[in-house]
Amino acid sequence: MTTFDDRERAFETKFARDQEVHFRIIARRNRLLGEWAAERMGLTPEETDAYAKAVVQADFEEAGDEDVIRKLAGDLTAANVDISDAEIRAMLNDKAAEARRQFIDSAN
């Protein structure tokens, strides 16, 4: 029975690690997305840092990416930046790839 118990523990450990990695990559993606949006809005470096943190926090409102997209769209529109949801979604994908690369580079 210990072989099965060991396998079960190994799978549980791998699952927990995979979830942690996913969370870190998504948080990094949201931070990069916030920095991009802050640049588009012309925020100062201090404001950019605070805004990027706010975008990361916005992702905890509901499951999925819609809460982040809604925040960015609303804030960019309020700052008179002409942007579509499609552009935000495309940047979300770009920043996800960048965050994944950064995570892999930092692990090596």
Score class of each variant (00 low, 15 high):
1 M>D: 07
1 M>K: 12
2 T>F: 15
2 T>R: 12
3 T>N: 14
5 D>L: 11
5 D>M: 10
5 D>A: 11
6 D>R: 10
7 R>V: 06
8 E>C: 11
8 E>K: 13
9 R>M: 10
11 F>I: 13
11 F>T: 12
11 F>R: 15
11 F>V: 12
11 F>A: 13
13 T>R: 10
14 K>H: 01
14 K>M: 00
16 A>D: 12
16 A>K: 08
16 A>P: 07
16 A>E: 13
17 R>Q: 10
20 E>N: 12
21 V>P: 01
23 F>C: 06
23 F>Y: 11
24 R>A: 13
24 R>E: 08
25 I>A: 10
26 I>T: 13
27 A>P: 10
27 A>G: 07
28 R>F: 10
29 R>W: 02
29 R>E: 00
29 R>D: 00
31 R>D: 08
32 L>T: 07
33 L>G: 04
33 L>T: 02
34 G>A: 03
35 E>Y: 05
36 W>L: 03
36 W>I: 03
37 A>L: 05
37 A>D: 02
38 A>R: 06
38 A>V: 04
40 R>I: 09
40 R>E: 14
43 L>Y: 15
45 P>S: 05
46 E>C: 07
46 E>D: 15
47 E>S: 05
47 E>D: 13
47 E>K: 02
47 E>T: 00
48 T>L: 11
49 D>S: 14
53 K>L: 14
53 K>M: 13
54 A>R: 14
55 V>K: 01
56 V>H: 05
57 Q>P: 00
57 Q>C: 01
59 D>W: 09
59 D>N: 12
59 D>L: 02
60 F>V: 08
60 F>E: 14
60 F>D: 13
61 E>Q: 06
61 E>T: 08
62 E>Y: 06
62 E>M: 07
62 E>C: 04
63 A>C: 05
63 A>R: 13
63 A>G: 09
65 D>Y: 01
65 D>W: 00
65 D>E: 06
66 E>Y: 12
66 E>M: 15
66 E>R: 14
67 D>V: 08
67 D>P: 09
67 D>A: 12
68 V>S: 09
69 I>H: 09
70 R>H: 15
70 R>Q: 15
71 K>M: 15
71 K>Y: 14
71 K>C: 11
72 L>C: 04
73 A>L: 11
73 A>K: 07
75 D>Q: 03
75 D>M: 04
75 D>H: 06
78 A>E: 03
78 A>M: 03
78 A>L: 03
79 A>D: 02
79 A>K: 03
79 A>T: 03
80 N>I: 03
80 N>D: 14
81 V>I: 11
82 D>S: 08
82 D>W: 00
82 D>C: 02
82 D>K: 05
83 I>V: 15
83 I>M: 09
84 S>G: 08
85 D>P: 00
85 D>G: 01
85 D>L: 06
86 A>R: 13
86 A>E: 03
86 A>C: 01
86 A>V: 07
88 I>H: 02
89 R>I: 09
89 R>A: 05
90 A>E: 01
91 M>P: 01
92 L>I: 02
94 D>L: 11
94 D>C: 07
94 D>P: 04
95 K>E: 04
95 K>V: 05
95 K>D: 00
98 E>W: 02
98 E>D: 06
100 R>K: 09
100 R>C: 01
100 R>Q: 05
101 R>Y: 02
102 Q>I: 04
102 Q>T: 04
102 Q>S: 07
105 D>M: 08
105 D>T: 09
106 S>C: 00
108 N>M: 11
108 N>V: 13
108 N>Q: 12
